Simulated scan of single mutants.
Amino acid sequence: MKKHRIAVIPGDGIGLEVIDAGKKVLETLVESYPSVGFEFKDFDWSSKRYLEKGQYIPDGGIEELKTFDAIYFGAVGSEEVPDHISLWDLRLKICQGFDQYANVRPARVLPGVTSRLQHADKIDWVIIRENSEGEYSGNGGRVHQGLPDEVGTEVSLFTRKGIERIHRFAFDMAMSRPRKKLTLVTKSNAQRHGMVLWDEIFFEVAKDYPEVEINRELVDAVTTTMVLKPERLDVIVATNLHADIISDLAAALSGSLGIAPTANLNPSGEFPSMFEPIHGSAFDITGKGIANPIGAFWTAVMMLEHLGEQTLAERLMAAVEEVIGSGLQAPDLGGKATTREITDAVCASIREKASVAA
């Protein structure tokens, strides 16, 4: 039996609930199709741990993570810890430490989901977010703190290496899709240095992909395209900040943040990649049993694809679509189903399909 070692970091808030649900459907999947197995190891890296011990990640933790095939991550964020500490000390420390420079966020309206967008059936996008530099490089500082002339700087950092590799990744993604279309999102009319470099390298790389149809949109303009003409978009590539924002819009237009997945990829395979739903800690619903686990399930599908388990990925996605298409939906989609009810239904669908196949 082929076995994949998965590091599990539920983190904070509803992350614990949806990642537990995700583990259950993955375990059901391999029980039903026993040619593959998973070895899970849970890590208590959370804001609770930070408050108790002063660290999100213990000494040697990053080195231990290197031994795993993938990381299944829930959420980070607490009302008791400043956001910049929780984000930089956990999620970004892993992303940057493992050079997970390609953030991939697919968006489409799943069966049975009602979007507030009139032409939501036209949404079938993959947003590629540069995940290692740009606006979130951490370059900057503060001086004269607390004084009237205090100054804070946040310097966007763009390198030729970082820009070229994310553009090539995006072009390869576009090549793998039927429409072979790639939209460059930028703000080079106002940001005349790093963003102009971003644009120039895109068009340099485009020469190596003549089969891909390209277009360029400013980040403010692309939000209107997403709402008014969603059919114009397919694969989108953008900087760290810009893609962060438009991918949340994409999730909302697709129905809810609760169903959206993310992959933080180290394409070379030198380090493990990390997979997480995008909804965050959601402390307003933590512990109520109503968190939507679909985002965690779709994230697990992406993890399976990355691990080379395409057939298992398709089986899990089919079960997810069957359940959500039946109308069994969480409150964020207008339904009344609990996290457990949705999880049990997806597990039952997996078992039923495996029984029929046998």
Rank of each mutant, 00 (worst) to 15 (best):
A170Q: 04
V109F: 11
L257R: 03
V109E: 10
Q96A: 10
E231Q: 14
G327E: 05
T343D: 11
F275I: 04
P34V: 06
S78Y: 02
L26I: 06
M274A: 07
Q191M: 15
I166W: 00
L184K: 07
E133R: 13
I350D: 05
L328P: 00
R165S: 07
I94E: 03
S326F: 02
A348W: 00
L304F: 05
L241T: 08
Y101F: 15
Q55V: 13
I57R: 04
R216A: 09
E276M: 10
P267F: 03
G295F: 00
N264R: 07
G162N: 02
Q145F: 14
M302K: 08
G61P: 13
R129M: 07
E200R: 15
A330H: 06
V104K: 09
G335S: 07
D20N: 08
K181E: 02
Q329N: 09
A120G: 04
I85A: 09
S355R: 15
Y50T: 01
W198N: 11
V227N: 13
K93H: 03
A357F: 06
A238Y: 08
G54V: 12
L65C: 07
R179N: 11
A120W: 12
F158A: 05
N215L: 09
N215E: 15
V30S: 14
R179Q: 13
A102P: 01
Q145H: 14
L333V: 02
E341C: 06
G141K: 08
A357V: 02
V8D: 03
K207W: 04
G54E: 12
